[in-house]
Design a protein around this nucleic acid. Structure first.
Length: 159
DNA sequence: GCCAACGTTGGC
DNA sequence: GCCAACGTTGGC
């Protein structure tokens, strides 16, 4: 087993759990539920560790991009919404004795001056970022340390 | 609201 | 287990 990545990018819709809502939650911590993709689930299950850095992405909005910084807070557990028939994330095929979907806690650390997709694309240093690749739809992707460092540098330069 | 990309489903 | 049809994501 190679070392787990230490940085991640997690997409959320601003009207669902935007960075503002996350920061307003108790301990600024929210349960990251609704993941219904096996690859993304496996990142949560097998890769993410408490303390890992998270780029907080807003998608399906006017300016998709990075809106905040967060950290993985752990507490991996079955995603309750898969059993809730009223939830849009309800999965009738998932059984309680063998939950298909997982969620974990994410703690928002700070909001940043948004860095849009277009802004990110202008840096050759970031051209390999997974989220910038054509056709990428994964809601959770690993972030290379060099990309993380570069983006943190951009954020520091904002102040 | 379009549509490319990609994941999932289900008939065979 | 192949693969066509269908559904979803998400930037544009």
């Amino acid at each position: 087993m190679n070392a787990a990545p230490r940085y991640w990018l997690m997409k959320n819709e601003p009207d669902e759990y935007g960075i503002d809502q996350a920061l307003a939650a108790p301990d600024a911590t929210i349960a990251w539920d609704g993941v219904r993709n096996y690859q993304a689930r496996n990142f949560m299950r097998d890769g993410m560790q408490v303390g890992d850095g998270v780029l907080y992405w807003h998608s399906s909005c006017a300016e998709p991009g990075i809106y905040g910084i967060a950290r993985v807070a752990g507490n991996l557990r079955p995603d309750a919404s898969q059993f809730d028939a009223q939830s849009k994330y309800f999965d009738p095929k998932s059984k309680r004795e063998a939950p298909r979907w997982l969620m974990l806690d994410v703690q928002a650390l700070r909001k940043i001056e948004p860095i849009s997709v277009a802004a990110l694309r202008q840096y050759p240093e970031l051209q390999d970022m997974r989220v910038l690749q054509k056709g990428n739809r994964l809601s959770i992707t690993p972030v290379d340390a060099v990309h993380w460092d570069f983006i943190i540098g951009l954020i520091e330069a904002q102040r």
